[in-house]
Design a protein around this nucleic acid. Structure first.
Lengths: 337, 337
DNA sequence: CTTGGCACTCTGTCTTCCCGAGTGCCAAGT
DNA sequence: ACTTGGCACTCGGGAAGACAGAGTGCCAAG
């Protein structure tokens, strides 16, 4: 009984604070939410909540504000993810449906998410590692240079320029291309290194130097892209918000691929939402912000993650709903292509 | 004589204001720059400069601040582009040299420029239009879907998924691919539409539907990319600066491809620096900012543009030096590959 | 356990005041 | 005709003080 009401009070505090951005006092609470008790009672509850670290007051004689711990409890037990409206869904669907290639999908997704949540959206490109090789192309640029192109089943294209020590004939390139495709078509990226391990031995001796060069580039492109490309959008939404620390730090963090990477979180269950609140985040400079992220991918495999970053004081139910919905729709789009 | 000194005063005002960010008064000017005259004389000059619109005072009894017109005169006639230090040059060179593909070149360039100038850097991807087709690839994904890949001599790769109304055999794809490459290899992108115009007629009737579909995608990818991709970096540098208007507007403008596009300016002479100061810029919301841009490209052709955006109160000589240097180095890199 | 009452403590805001920087103008000097 | 020192004037910005209002904690009564 007592405990129940305290939780209700906490929920009310979070909701009010999120919507008004001002410390909320006992009187206002009693008025706006019909908790059926007087301000004095609420004050007592608040005192206990504060003692337990769920709320804090910026100054003596100011209202209370949720702490990170308070938000955490709110997200875990006091709130429900809020589904999107029908109109929003249709908008998402039609907006994403127009994408022409994987780049376009990612670009549209990140913009969509930023607009939808009015926060900074972050989208990781689908990981190569869990996709398979669809085709490999070798295109002569000059007699010593080749363009190496790797196409995956997710529509991703990797390209590299290969320098050869000596001039190579067109026919050898064609041969090598055929060998590579025969060997690797449909092969998972993770398995590729093994498959090509003995390839040079099957080739005539004069082809081996070229093959070795090309293979090293192939392997390199597989490994290197392990740290994936990440894009973001909606930084303008940070302008108004008051991050407890400087805006500068946040913008800097956003431009650091590595930080962003970790921010989205390690791979978890597909479709499960990850929420990281304020100081739960390992990076100073982002401690006034929260991240809501989810995995996405075609079918059952999780390919990558996407999410949004905003002030700790954000509307978690709505944000979580938007992130989840977008993750699902993108997954659908990817599965269809 | 008189005129000369007034210009010297204007120059001094710009320099002082840029370095201190505070309105500069007659006394301070007389002290810091040895103009050989008394503050009272300077006051007279300042009054005239103000009358002519080169400077203004934020409030009565505050120092003077350059107007956009004042900056313009400064840039046009009173300043010299400041070359980079040797160390900076070496840093640029080594940083850009490590790029593996065109994407990498652009990414590195934009970061480099942002760091160098401590402002927001903007880089446009090299235009497809002035490059030539190196290779076209068609990769079957399913029996009704093809991946269309276009590779240009600048190392750029365009990809699209093509949907066919009916199942297509591998051999027909191969044939079409061969035809396309024979027809278009080395062809300028601008000339491509003409070259393929009569291609369907040369094909057996049963191949024509597929060919038509593929060609439409090809043409589309040529046209569509006319509005080019643009990337930016260094938004964190805006955090401290005081744009006369909100930071939000600027961030929003940066995420609008179209605005950015126009911002960099129309194609001009290669290597010529374009400077757009404050209200010279057509976009509200960017009127507290200036843009310094230059073209770059391999050899004599200008492929695209790059530049930086910062507060009107920026160090023009240094910024211009950095932009010019980076544009040159990128051009070198591109010419070499 | 809840509630109303009450004294207390802060913050934020508004006003006032004052200092100093900077100007414009004028009259004198070269 | 230009330069210079002097001087009165203006105005922004910071310091100090007063004040109102919101909110709390505690206590005693229901």
């Amino acid at each position: 009984m007592v405990d129940d009401r305290k939780l209700a009070v906490l929920r009310a505090i979070v909701e009010d604070y999120v919507s008004t951005n001002e410390p909320v006092g006992s009187k206002a609470l009693a008025e706006r939410h019909n908790l059926g008790v007087s301000p004095a009672t609420i004050r007592n509850d608040m005192a206990m909540l504060e003692e337990q670290g769920y709320i804090a007051q910026p100054h003596t004689s100011a209202g209370r504000v949720p702490t990170d711990k308070g938000y955490r409890l709110f997200v875990d037990r006091l709130s429900q993810v809020k589904p999107l409206s029908g109109a929003e869904r249709r908008a998402i669907e039609s907006f994403l449906a127009g994408a022409v290639d994987i780049d376009d999908v990612v670009t549209r997704t990140v913009r969509l998410l930023a607009q939808l949540t009015r926060q900074v959206a972050v989208v990781q490109y689908p990981t190569l590692t869990s996709s398979t090789i669809r085709h490999i192309e070798l295109v002569p640029l000059t007699d010593r240079r080749l363009m190496f192109v790797l196409i995956t089943n997710t529509g991703r294209v990797e390209q590299r320029v290969v320098e050869s020590a000596e001039a190579v004939e067109e026919s050898r390139v064609a041969h090598l291309r055929a060998m590579l495709n025969a060997c690797l078509d449909g092969c998972g990226l993770a398995a590729a290194p093994d498959r090509v391990a003995d390839l040079p031995e099957k080739l005539p001796a004069e082809d081996r130097p070229l093959a070795a060069t090309v293979l090293s580039v192939l392997l390199e492109s597989l490994v290197e892209r392990h740290d994936e490309k990440i894009v973001f959008a909606g930084t303008a939404n940070l302008a108004g918000a008051d991050l407890s620390v400087g805006l500068r730090e946040v913008l800097e963090a956003l431009e650091e691929q590595v930080v962003l990477m970790r921010l989205l979180g390690e791979t978890t269950d597909q479709s499960a939402l990850t929420v990281r609140i304020g100081t739960e985040n390992p990076y100073t400079g982002l401690q006034g912000t929260s991240i809501v992220a989810a995995g996405y991918g075609s079918g059952d495999r999780q390919l990558a993650r996407l999410g949004v970053l905003g002030p700790t004081r954000m509307d978690y139910p709505v944000t979580m709903g938007a992130v989840r919905a977008v993750a699902r729709y993108v997954s659908q789009i990817l599965a269809a292509s």
